[in-house]
Amino acid sequence: MSFVLACPHCGPRPVDEFAYSGEVTRRPQSSPTLRELTDYVYFRDNVAGRQREWWQHRQGCGEWFLAERDTRTNEIISVSLPKPGT
């Protein structure tokens, strides 16, 4: 893995400056069933294709952001700052 990812603030940087935190999940609102909870905690779509995921520019500016990446090619389609509360 040596692809380049563009931090929304710092611009293109080698991927090893970033921390990866997996695909974007949807947290249940309140008291989920055990099934809903395990779905959320343990199961991922793991798509071969475009995926929305969390990244943090850990060694740089520290920002958490969202990236859309093609998991087959590591092509980054877009990056954006999260809109909190959504």
Partner: peptide, 18 residues
């Protein structure tokens, strides 16, 4: 570091730390 010396100041990887 593999930061671009022409694009400073910035924060980034340096001797495997930040």
């Amino acid at each position: 570091t593999d930061l671009d010396p022409g694009a400073l100041p910035t924060a980034g990887g340096f001797a495997r730390i930040s």
